[in-house]
Each structure stands twice: as structure tokens, then as C-alpha cells.
């Protein structure tokens, strides 16, 4: 009764829960679902656009490679994509051919509401604020905090342990050594009132569990 209702208590059945514990809101706009992999316990909130249909076109020569190359978005475990995000694989002309490149998002990544992601990859333990734009082929390494309303320009590489912000984004600091450490808060057991055990960049399993 006194559990932290950090997430709005939604009427039952607003999301579809998969076998591996992914929670996908029914109102999410997902196209090309076969090309999308969710790692398990990952949350896709309402109004999220996942453009799995924008995948690499198989070359006409060999059909065997088709199944492997049509992969477009993969999101790891315990990641949360908040409402209104657009996740869209990037494309560019390479050797005369325009190709969509698969996008990879790691574990325990939080993507704030209304962000647009066109990165090549986002590593684990990344916290992205609301209204961010990650332009095509940007790469976010591990343990990064992206402040709200940031625009990460195309092709930018954000090194590990940095805090970025601004338009265009620049590295404005480093996350502390304690980034993602819960500091004695229990990772299992869900400690009731005191135990909001998830922190930015930390293990988001409890946050995912609290979303219902």
C-alpha cells in the first residue's frame, strides 16, 4: 500500500507482456516487428515509434544473407523507452548504395520521453533525458548521461563516463565514479518505501518491475 508508485498505475492490459518479460504498450506504434529484438524486461511505452521496417535491403545476388541482414533494431535487457520516442535506424550512402544500418541499444538504458534516436549504437547504462535528439550514426558509449533537450549531432562519438548537453552536444563533464551504484539499496526484494533502488545509469530491473 505504501509502495512507491513511481509509475502511474495503469488499468490492466495497457501493455503486452512477452515471455521474456518485455512490456510493450498497446498504443506503441511498431512497424516491422520481425526486425526488432527486445532483450527481455524491456519497456516500450505508449506512442513510441519503432521503425523496424527500415532495414537493410538484401542484395539480390544471395538470398541466404537476407534473414541476417534484415535485422534493424535491437534493444537489450531492462531498458526503458519512455512515451513519444521515435527510434529509427540511420541510413547513409555507402559505396553508391543507400543502406539502412541496424541500431543497437544496450542494457539498462533509459530513453526519456519525446526523444528521437537515430544512433548507430547506444551502450549499456546510458541515461537519456527528455526531448533529446540523437542524430544519425552517433555512438553513445557506456555510462553516459545525456541531459534533457540535447541534440547529439550526426557521427558524434560520446566516450564512456561523460555527461553531454547542449545544441549541438558537447562533453560538459564526467559522471562520478559512483554512476549507477545504488549505494546499499537492495537490488532484489523491492525494499518498500525506502527502496527506490534504481538510480540513473544503474540497474533498472526494479523500475521495470514497478511499471505495471
Amino acid at each position: 500500500m505504501s509502495r512507491p508508485s513511481a509509475a502511474r498505475k495503469a488499468p490492466k492490459g495497457e501493455y503486452i507482456e512477452t515471455d521474456s518479460g518485455n512490456k510493450v504498450w498497446r498504443k506503441a506504434n511498431i512497424s516491422g516487428a520481425p526486425n526488432i529484438t527486445l532483450g527481455g524486461r524491456t519497456v516500450i511505452r505508449e506512442d513510441v515509434h519503432l521503425r523496424g521496417d527500415l532495414h537493410r535491403l538484401s542484395t539480390t545476388k544471395e538470398d541466404g544473407s537476407k534473414s541476417s541482414s534484415s535485422h534493424s533494431i535491437s534493444i537489450g535487457r531492462c531498458s526503458v523507452v519512455a512515451a513519444g520516442c521515435v527510434i529509427k535506424p540511420p541510413c547513409r550512402v555507402s559505396r553508391g548504395v543507400l543502406t539502412y544500418y541496424p541500431m543497437k541499444i544496450g542494457d539498462n538504458v533509459f530513453i526519456g520521453p519525446n526523444s528521437t534516436i537515430q544512433s548507430a549504437s547506444i551502450s549499456s547504462h546510458v541515461h537519456i533525458g527528455e526531448h533529446c535528439v540523437l542524430q544519425p550514426f552517433s555512438m553513445v558509449r557506456e555510462n553516459v548521461k545525456i541531459l534533457p533537450h540535447t541534440i547529439v549531432p550526426a557521427n558524434m562519438v560520446i566516450p564512456s563516463n561523460s555527461v553531454v548537453g547542449g545544441r549541438p552536444a558537447r562533453i560538459i563533464g564526467e559522471v562520478g565514479e559512483g554512476w549507477g551504484a545504488a549505494g546499499g539499496a537492495s537490488a532484489a526484494g523491492g525494499a518498500g518505501t525506502g527502496g527506490e533502488s534504481w538510480v540513473e545509469g544503474g540497474d533498472l530491473r526494479e523500475l521495470v518491475r514497478s511499471i505495471r
Binding site: P4, S5, A6, A7, R8, R45, E46, V80, A82, A83, G84, F110, G112, P113, N114, H127, E130, H131, G183, G184, A185, G194, E196, W198, E200, L207, I211
Partner: peptide, 22 residues
């Protein structure tokens, strides 16, 4: 570790994990 939150008014969402645009 010291954390604080309002006892009565539950915030609509976690301050650093907003789920919906405010």
C-alpha cells in the same frame, strides 16, 4: 544515502525517470 520524498503527494513520475512528457 539520504533520500527524500513527499509523504502525501505522490509525484506523477520519478523525477529522473519521466515516462511521459511534462
Amino acid at each position: 544515502k539520504i533520500t527524500m520524498r513527499s509523504l502525501n503527494a505522490q509525484p506523477a513520475q520519478h523525477p529522473s525517470f519521466p515516462m511521459q512528457a511534462t
